[in-house]
Design a protein around this nucleic acid. Structure first.
Lengths: 326, 326
DNA sequence: TTGTATGCGTTATCAA
DNA sequence: TTGATAACGCATACAA
């Protein structure tokens, strides 16, 4: 690996001059410029970003914290974020946060990371704040918000129109977790004059019980209650898929007897049978905007808050209410 | 951010001594040890890994190159790799290689990365070799191999037993791409005395046409040929899922008229209907072992080559041949 | 056992 | 327009 000094020597100039031309940081004469560039090319010189980081205190390195990469939603979000970062010259590292713990998180400050995106329901956001590193999350109201209200209202309205009166909800998260979707779904139901029954809300045990198996489990619990319902909203599509599987296993027909819809509009929705109604949230765009806002904060640029609109996508999993009781 | 010097001052020792105790690199007296540790804790000191990298020339930073994160197979592989890396103190960055190009790859040198995992069908491996950075790929024979032969033999044998004679193959990759699975499937067919018909092999156009839509497209092409076949092997499950969708759309019943099996054993296999027969490849373990072998190379440790065994998983998508013709 | 001093490859400050 | 040279925070050879 050629160093800057070698380039300087070959070009017959000082290291400072090499910096000037390579970083376009000061005016240099045409003569030296070409000499330096030629020398750099001849030596196949690549600047050492580690050394640069040491003095500039900027690493152009950010991290994304995820805990459920098996959920395609987060993968798409990640793709969107990575793309934006790459375009801006940042490299993004993936931190899979699971049981193992937060020692990995403390490392992020040692590594001089410029910023962090928290792409998960985060319990210990406090730990991250203490790092004094710029970060953005997906949970709270922030610079980039997904506005679920439209789509949720639409979904509930659609169910109402089809005659559904008792709608259950597979929440995925623990009770009392503040999640926009969950408060909005309640509001949407009230708005449509539907009876809101706490017993039809199934909560998760862990911070994020939102996988297929969790949907299956939640539906099992719901059925066990023996309460009447004719439609189900699941926090996300994976849960909805699990729930449908459970209903099938119990010999209950979807959508003939129970209508189901989820959220995220993942690719699988159109593959399964019945195809799954869902809410499209532009996960890729969301991820991209999250990164944009993070980079803006890092670079002390202003960032205009963005509100991402959602859309209800009706597919086969929803049908007219048959007034059947479970 | 407290620096090592501040810790030294507070503890009343030299910076070298601080290094000695923090890195356990030299014997120090109990006295100084506690003094240093206390000072470090008091100042909430975190070593600057960037500075360390500059002198040690080790970044504990590796990259994984992927081009299709929408394929759960790669996600699982990534998870396995990341877990191993994290445990060894490495941070892993994700490089999404798409059309945009390879400028990102040159950056990896500048960032002093310790190693690279190429988790994709790679065209420009040459570019990466030129970086003179340790790397491992998934394509070629290497330190860690997935032995598909068992599972493929099993799969073909199973089909043979069920009366299938003409088996098509959706290859996903471009013709002449050397892929273990594709050469092995041919061998398996010959071994079972099945007629091998080139016309029943559908190739991809791009370097990796292996998504759901590609499977759909490949099956469309296959049907258009009008050649007889009663079973299909798809390079991976996504393609198989696309193929089944296509067959359904054409009113062809799976598995009653056509049997299908894929490869990777992704979660969706058990969700769709019919459930998809597949080959389990322990993607998580594979990813982990890839990382192990990379780290071994980086740290100049010996690495015992590993051969990952595969298993054929029979599910609903395969049934007795009805001798129907398409 | 502990301290001093040098270098890692940059950027940046100040002179020239 | 260019060049010395001092940081940046750490590791380490060598001295003490």
């Amino acid at each position: 690996m050629a160093t800057r000094k070698e380039v300087a020597d070959l070009a017959g100039v000082s290291v400072a001059t090499v910096s000037y031309v390579l970083n376009h940081t000061k005016k240099v004469s045409q003569q030296v410029e070409v000499k330096v560039l030629e020398a750099a090319k001849a030596l196949d010189y690549h600047p050492n970003l580690v050394a640069r980081s040491l003095v500039t205190k900027k690493s152009f390195h950010v991290a994304i914290l995820v805990n459920d990469l098996q959920n395609p939603y987060y993968v798409t979000l990640l793709e969107g974020a990575q793309e934006v970062a790459a375009k801006a010259g940042y490299i993004v590292s993936l931190i899979l946060v699971n049981s193992s713990g937060s020692d990995q998180i403390m490392e992020l400050v040692s590594r001089q990371l410029d910023g962090i995106i928290i792409a998960m329901q985060c319990e210990n956001e406090e730990d991250i704040r203490k790092l004094h590193i710029p970060y953005v999350g997906i949970a709270e109201k922030a610079a980039v918000n997904v506005d679920y209200s439209n789509a949720l209202n639409e979904g509930i309205h659609e169910l109402k129109k089809l005659g559904h009166k008792r709608i259950a909800c597979l929440c995925g998260l623990q009770k009392n977790t503040r999640d926009t979707r969950l408060s909005l779904i309640v509001r949407a139901m009230k708005k449509e004059g539907l009876t809101y029954d706490e017993d039809l809300f199934i909560w998760g045990n862990e911070s994020e019980d939102t996988r297929i198996a969790d949907g299956y489990e939640a539906m099992t619990q719901l059925l066990k209650k023996g309460k009447e319902f004719t439609a189900v909203y699941a926090l996300n599509d994976l849960m909805a898929i699990g729930a449908i599987k459970c209903l099938k296993d119990q010999g209950i027909k979807v959508p003939d007897e129970i209508s189901v819809f989820g959220c995220d509009n993942i690719e699988t929705d159109e593959i399964i049978s019945p195809t799954l109604s869902s809410i499209d949230v532009s996960a890729r765009y969301f991820g991209g905007q999250l990164m944009e806002s993070l980079l803006a904060e890092i670079e002390h640029r202003p960032f205009e808050p963005v509100f991402i609109q959602t859309k209800f996508i009706r597919r086969e999993s929803i049908a007219r209410c048959k007034e059947s009781v479970y």
